[in-house]
Computed example of a mutant assay.
Amino acid sequence: MKSNNNLKPQDILILLKISTLGEQEWYQHTLSEDLNISQSEISECLTRSKYSGLIDASRKKVNLLNLLEFIQHGIKYVFPQQPGPIVRGIATAHSASPLDKEIQSDQNYVWPYARGDMRGQAIQPLYKSVPKAILKDKKLHEVLALVDAIRVGKVREQHLAISLLKERLQHTQ
């Protein structure tokens, strides 16, 4: 039986987490704990990402240019999202740092989370564990919020998010 090598949304989450770590050494079990994703799923992600050219052959270093290209040009088509009903949650897209300082809006976007501190239109995160994972990782929160701005934002927001995302991730390499 042939395995499916198509990317899954959690692959982007895992690759972004690895990217925010920069040169810091990481292990699958620590990624698993930090992201609330099983070790087997982390391993499968790394295999799919290697196949897609988003991580190197050693499965340790993200091919940042390829990842940024995919996020810039493909993520809104491969993992689309539409704002949903008003819910309590954690700020994302233009409602979260760093875009909240650049873009003024009457409408907030949030990842649904019962313990969140903001009300706004629901944006489903790339993976269900995102709200818990970002509570202890500000860098990850920022890059995922920028990715959501690319997924659901208007053209101006998308361009600003792409620029800020490149800036943040290239400084970690």
Score class of each variant (00 low, 15 high):
H73L: 11
P125L: 03
I103D: 02
K8C: 07
D137A: 08
H29G: 05
G120I: 04
A122S: 15
P112H: 14
L13V: 15
A93W: 01
E25S: 13
G84S: 11
A91T: 07
Q24M: 11
Q104E: 14
V78C: 03
D34E: 15
T30W: 07
S52M: 07
L135H: 02
I134C: 04
L140C: 06
L169M: 07
M118A: 09
E25M: 08
A91M: 03
A93M: 02
D56G: 08
P131F: 01
Q39V: 13
L64C: 06
Q24E: 15
K166S: 14
L165K: 01
I162V: 15
L31H: 02
E41Y: 08
A114Y: 05
N6Q: 12
Q173A: 12
P85F: 08
S32H: 06
G84M: 04
E44M: 11
E157A: 14
I12Y: 00
E41P: 03
Q173H: 10
V78Y: 06
K61T: 15
L16A: 04
I75T: 01
L146S: 05
E23Y: 09
S97Y: 15
A96Q: 01
I12H: 02
G53H: 07
K138C: 10
L7V: 03
V147F: 05
Q124N: 14
Y109R: 11
K132S: 14
V87M: 06
E142V: 06
S32K: 04
W111Q: 08
G153Y: 00
V155H: 09
T172R: 12
G120V: 05
I134W: 00
S97C: 09
G84N: 05
K61E: 12
S38R: 07
V87I: 11
Y77K: 11
L7W: 00
D11M: 02
F79L: 05
Q124A: 13
K17F: 12
G120L: 04
L144C: 06
F79H: 04
L65Q: 13
I150P: 01
Q121Y: 08
I75R: 01
H159R: 10
D117L: 10
K61W: 05
P80V: 07
S3E: 13
Y77H: 13
R168Y: 07
K76R: 14
G84F: 05
I42E: 02
S40M: 12
S38Q: 12
T172V: 09
Y51E: 15
K128N: 15
E33G: 10
V147A: 05
Y109D: 06
E142A: 13
A133N: 06
L16D: 00
Q170H: 10
Y27I: 08
K139A: 14
Q72G: 12
K2V: 11
S40I: 12
L146V: 06
P125D: 07
V62Y: 00
S40R: 11
L15W: 00
K136L: 10
K61M: 07
W111G: 08
I150T: 04
K136W: 07
E33V: 08
K50V: 03
Q81P: 04
I14T: 09
H94C: 09
I123P: 00
G74A: 09
G89V: 00
L169K: 00
Q28H: 11
A149T: 05
